[in-house]
Computed example of a mutant assay.
Amino acid sequence: MHIVMAGASGLIGTSMSAAFRDAGNSVVTLVRRPPAGSNEVRWDPAAGVLDPSVLAGADAVVNLSGAGIGDRPWTRKRVEELFSSRLEPTRTLVQAMSKLDSPPATFISQSASGYYGDAGSTVLREDAPPGTGTLAQICVEWEQAALGAPAGVRVVMPRTGVVFSRSGGALGKLLPLMRLGVGGPFGNGRQFWPWVTLPDVSAAFLFLLGSAVSGPVNVSAPEQADVNTIVGALAHALHRPAVLRVPAPVLRTVMPGLGDELLLHSQRMEPAVLCSAGFRWQHGSLDEAARWVTAKESTM
C-alpha cells in the first residue's frame, strides 16, 4: 500500500510511519521544510498549497497535523493556532484530493477524545454527541473538514485518547516525578482518562487502513480507568508511592483552561467500533500498559 502522511514528525507520527513501513507499505511524508529525501514532499498547508499529483496513485492519506495541545499556555493566539494547525492542513488535503480523477480510496484524519468534552462517568461510544469546550469545538470542526473529502473516499476519524509513551506524550512530565516517588493524581482523580499505548495507536491506524470501517472511531484501550486507578497502576509498576495529589484549584491557577480540559475533564470512552471490527490490543489491560510504559529497555 502507498501512503501519504501529514504530521509524521511528532511522537505519534514517528511511531506510526515506522509501523507502516515495517508492515511493508511505502510512505511519503509531507513536510514544510526543504525535503531531506525522495520520501518527503514539501507543502504549505497554511497557504493551501499542495500539488495534487503528490496524492495521485496513493492508496491512503493519513492526516496527523496539529500543534501540540499541552505544549504552551492557552492564550487567544495559541487557541487560534490549535484550530488553524488542524483545519488548514485537513482542508488542503481535501482540496488536493478533489482535483484528482481517482483520489485515494482512504482518508484517515485524526481527531481526539476531546470531542466528547467533560462527560463524567457516561460510557461514550462513537455515536455519543459532542461535548462543549475548546477541545470539543476543535474536534467538531476538524471532523467536518475531513468529511469534505470527495465522494467515494472512505473517511475515518480516529478519536484518539490519552497516549501512553515511555518518553514524552501525556506521561512525559508525570513519569519522571513518579520514578522519584513524588507523583500523584490530578484533582479528585475520579475523572476517566481514555488511555491507550503508543504501539496500540499505530497498530489501530494500520488496522483501519486495511479495514472497511468508516466514520468516527474511538482509539483507546478496552479497559476503562479513572486517574486514581491509572496513577495507582503506574506507581505499582514502579514500586513507588503516589500520594502527592495535585488539587484542582492549583491546576486551574497554573494552567488556565488547559488544566481543566486536559487533566480534569472525564471521558469514559469505549472503543466499540474497533472491538466490533476485531482489533486486538497489545496492551489491552491497564496492568499490561503500566508494565510496558515503565520499562526502561526502550525510549519509545
Score class of each variant (00 low, 15 high):
M1P: 12
M5H: 01
M5W: 01
G7E: 08
L11P: 04
I12H: 03
S15K: 09
S17N: 02
S17V: 15
S26T: 15
V28D: 02
T29V: 15
L30N: 07
G37I: 04
N39H: 12
E40L: 10
R42I: 11
D44V: 09
P45E: 14
A47I: 03
G48K: 08
L50D: 13
L50H: 15
S53H: 11
D59S: 11
A60K: 11
S65V: 12
D71R: 12
W74T: 10
W74P: 10
T75D: 13
R78A: 08
E80H: 10
E81F: 00
R86E: 10
R86M: 06
T90C: 06
T92S: 15
S98K: 14
S98N: 12
D101H: 10
P104I: 02
A105L: 08
A105E: 13
T106K: 00
S109V: 01
Q110V: 13
G114N: 00
Y115N: 03
G117C: 06
A119S: 14
T122I: 11
T122N: 11
V123S: 14
V123I: 15
R125I: 09
D127F: 00
D127M: 01
P130V: 06
T132S: 15
G133R: 00
C139W: 04
V140Q: 13
W142P: 02
E143I: 01
L147M: 14
A151L: 05
G152M: 01
V156I: 15
P158F: 03
R159T: 02
R159P: 03
R159E: 01
V163C: 06
S165N: 11
G172S: 09
L174C: 09
P185V: 07
P185Q: 10
P185D: 09
G187K: 07
G187W: 02
Q191T: 13
F192A: 09
W193V: 11
L198W: 07
D200G: 04
S202P: 03
F205D: 08
F207Q: 04
G210F: 05
A212E: 15
V217H: 03
V219Q: 03
V231P: 12
G232R: 13
L234H: 12
H239I: 02
R240F: 06
P241T: 13
R245F: 02
P247N: 08
P249N: 07
V250S: 08
L251D: 10
R252T: 04
R252F: 00
M255I: 11
P256Y: 10
E270I: 06
V273L: 03
L274F: 09
S276M: 10
G278N: 01
G278F: 00
G284H: 02
G284W: 00
D287N: 03
E288M: 04
A289P: 13
A289S: 14
A290C: 03
T294P: 04
A295Y: 09
S298E: 11
S298Q: 15
S298H: 15
M300T: 11
M300Y: 09
